[in-house]
Nucleic acid binder design. Structure first.
Lengths: 192, 192
DNA sequence: GAGGCATGTACACGGTTGTTTACTTACGCC
DNA sequence: GGCGTAAGTAAACAACCGTGTACATGCCTC
C-alpha cells in the first residue's frame, strides 16, 4: 500500500488572505466585464476559493461590489503633486500606469445594474468629486470639478471602453497633448 | 349559456407594425438597462407582442441589438447646420431634445457584453466617426473627430449615466457654455 | 369559397444565475 | 491534548435566461 490518498494538499486557512484574493479577482472581473456579466463563481474561481465564501464574507454580490469600490477609489495621490503640472501628471498616470483606469471602467460597465449604479454614484460623489472640488478651490470649484470629470470620463471611455481608430495606442500622442492642455486650463482657471 | 369565450380580440396581423413595435421597445430598454439587463421577454411585453416573435424577426437578441443600432444611429442632421454655430447647435440638440442621448447610452450600457460591444464599435466607427471626420476636413480631421467624441461621450456619460451633483439639471447652464466653446474650438481649428 | 402561407401563440428545454443549507475540516486556546 | 469555533466545502434550491419547436389562426390569392 503506497499510502492513504492525499485528499487535499492541506490548504492553509487564512480569512484575510481569502478576502483580499476575492477582492482582487472582483476588481479584475468587474472592471473588464462589469457587474452583471461577472458571475460569483467566476470571481471565486479566479481567486482560487470556494464560491460560497463570497456570500460568507461579503453578504451578496452587491456587497462585494461595494467593498471592491471602497478599496480602489482613492484620488488623493493625484492631489499632492505640483499644481502647475496637474495636466501632464494626470495624463501620465492614466496613460502609462497599468490599469489606472480600472475603477472608472468598472463603474461605467456596471452602470446598467441599478444596485451597482447607486453604489458607484455614491462613492464617486463622496470620494472623488468632493475632494477634487475642495482641492481646486474657488471660483466655481464644483463646476470645474464636473468639467474635469467630463473630460476624463470621456477620454477613458473613448479609449478603453469604446476604442475607435483615431484613439488607437499608436496615434494617441496628439490627443494626449490636447488633453493635458484642456485639463490644465480648468485647473488654472482660478489663478487667471 | 352566455356565449363561447371571446378568446382573443381579433388582433390585427401586421408584420411591419410588429417589427417596429419591437424595435421601439428595444431602443427604450437597451438605452436604459443595457444589453445584458434587458430580457427578450421584457422587450416583447413592452412591445405588446409574443416573445417568440423577437427570435422570428431578428434571429437572436444580438440581431435585435444590431437592428436597433442601425435604426437610431444617424448624425447627418447635425452636419447640415451653420458650421460657425456647431457648438451651440450640438448642445441644443443633446440637452433639449428628449432622448437624443439614447444611442450613446445604449452603447455604453451595453459595452460589458462582447457581442454588443463589437456591434457598437462597428457602427460608431462607420456611421459616426467617418462622416464626422469627413465633415470636419483637414487638418487632422480624424484626431479632431476623436476629440469631439471624447468631449461628448464624457458629457453625456457624466450627465445621464453617472449623474453627479454639479451636473444636475438646475446647474447645468455653466457647463453648457463651456461645452459649446470647447466644441466650437475643435471645429474652428481648421479655419484658424 | 377553399387552400396555403405568413403571422402569432404556447410551452418546454438546457443552461446559468445568486443564494442558502448542511456538512467537514483545520486551527488556536484553555 | 482535546475541544470549540472559525474556515472551507459540496450540493441543491428556485428563478430566470435565450432559444427552439410544435401548433393555432387569420389574411390573401386563385
Amino acid at each position: 500500500m503506497p499510502r492513504t490518498e492525499p485528499k487535499k494538499p492541506t490548504r492553509q486557512r487564512d480569512a484575510d488572505r481569502t478576502r483580499t484574493a476575492i477582492l482582487d479577482a472582483a476588481r479584475t472581473l468587474f472592471s473588464t466585464r462589469g457587474f452583471t456579466n461577472t458571475g460569483v463563481r467566476e470571481v471565486a474561481e479566479l481567486a482560487g476559493v470556494n464560491s460560497a465564501l463570497v456570500g460568507r464574507y461579503f453578504g451578496s454580490k452587491e456587497g462585494l461590489y461595494r467593498a471592491t469600490l471602497e478599496r480602489i477609489i482613492d484620488i488623493s495621490p493625484m492631489l499632492h503633486g505640483d499644481r502647475r503640472r496637474f495636466g501632464v501628471d494626470m495624463v501620465a498616470i492614466f496613460c502609462d500606469t497599468q490599469d489606472a483606469s480600472g475603477p472608472l471602467a468598472m463603474m461605467i460597465l456596471s452602470a446598467a445594474d441599478p444596485a451597482a449604479h447607486a453604489a458607484s454614484i455614491e462613492f464617486l460623489q463622496t470620494k472623488v468629486m468632493v475632494p477634487l472640488a475642495a482641492w481646486l478651490g474657488p471660483p466655481n470649484a464644483e463646476e470645474r470639478a464636473a468639467r474635469l470629470n467630463i473630460l476624463w470620463t470621456g477620454f477613458l471611455t473613448s479609449w478603453k471602453l469604446l476604442p475607435l481608430e483615431p484613439l488607437s495606442d499608436a496615434r494617441i500622442a496628439s490627443t494626449r497633448r490636447w488633453l493635458e492642455a484642456a485639463t490644465q486650463a480648468i485647473v488654472d482657471e482660478g489663478t487667471g
